[in-house]
Design a protein around this nucleic acid. Structure first.
Ligand code: MN
Ligand code: MN
Ligand code: ZN
Ligand code: ZN
Lengths: 142, 142
DNA sequence: ACTCAAGTTAGACAAAATCTATATTTAGAT
DNA sequence: ATCTAAATATAGATTTTGTCTAACTTGAGT
């Protein structure tokens, strides 16, 4: 499996717990919190302690196999999608969804950014996801 | 003062503590954490307890006079800049700076966003702020 | 098989945020 | 001015989130 390859090149031992954490994140691209990952991993074997989940999230992040994504709430959220992408946050259900990458026009923000040295950027969209939009279709005038 | 006006229209009583919290945020646009606000407010009168700082950040946020901004670390950061704007995060010193607003081109992301109902968006830039860029000027090849 | 750094674990600890119960303040009515 | 009810302030308890410690286990190379 290619995850073993990723572990090897990152000098991380492919332990069962580490594998389970990364496999859950890769298979459930919902930007889970550490607690959600802990519960998911412990629903079936192999189990992992809370400390191990946190340890592995840190080691995977340091190795670049996982990213911590910005989030509104208190608990950090993690992302195993390594492709460059934007995010969409549903203001009704809280879902954090991936938006495939597109560049800003090269001139965008040139003046607004002043003398800053920009190495990267990301757009965060907000609104209603498809499910929420359909569920409560648009309140016409009463 | 116009803050009284804002309080009045938000149905928030203009207490000394609430005023101090909002005044600090408005006067120090560095996206402070609750703890930083707590310490700043308690350097001079009127004092405010930790609970009051948290309570007021919530009531001010609900009233739309303050926003919680996304942040990397664990502690939430707050913003009294109500104008629409983007943000820049310095990867060296951690500073969170305001970038004045500019629109995405109207077509941007149209396909990537699919059927989602976008009500707002924000760009988060990362890199080196002016101070950090100057401090460590660019490592040439060795 | 032996070795030892890397990894796991429970539980202690710390930081960030919320809640509870009580005291105080405020806006408005008399 | 006094009174009242609701909003606010507060200290400390509690909860949530994350880190650390110290003992134990695993596993990759020899
Ligand atoms: Mn993502
Ligand atoms: Mn801002
Ligand atoms: Zn939704
Ligand atoms: Zn900087």
């Amino acid at each position: 499996m290619e995850l073993d390859q990723a572990f090897r090149s990152a000098a991380l031992r492919p332990t069962a717990q580490r594998y389970a954490v990364l496999e859950f994140l890769a298979g459930h691209p919902v930007h889970a919190t550490a607690e959600e990952i802990f519960r998911a991993v412990n629903r079936d074997d192999p189990r992992a302690s809370r400390a191990t989940v946190y340890n592995n999230l840190r080691s995977l992040a340091k190795a670049g196999l996982v990213r911590e994504v910005m989030s509104e709430g208190k608990a950090a959220r993690f992302d195993a999608n390594l492709r460059r992408h934007h995010h969409f946050i549903c203001e009704r259900c809280g879902a954090v969804e991936d938006i495939s990458w597109f560049d800003l026009p090269p001139s965008a923000g040139r003046v607004a950014l002043g003398g800053r040295d920009v190495s990267n950027y990301e757009i965060v969209f907000r609104g209603a996801c498809e499910g929420c939009r359909d569920a409560q279709p648009e309140q016409g005038a009463k």
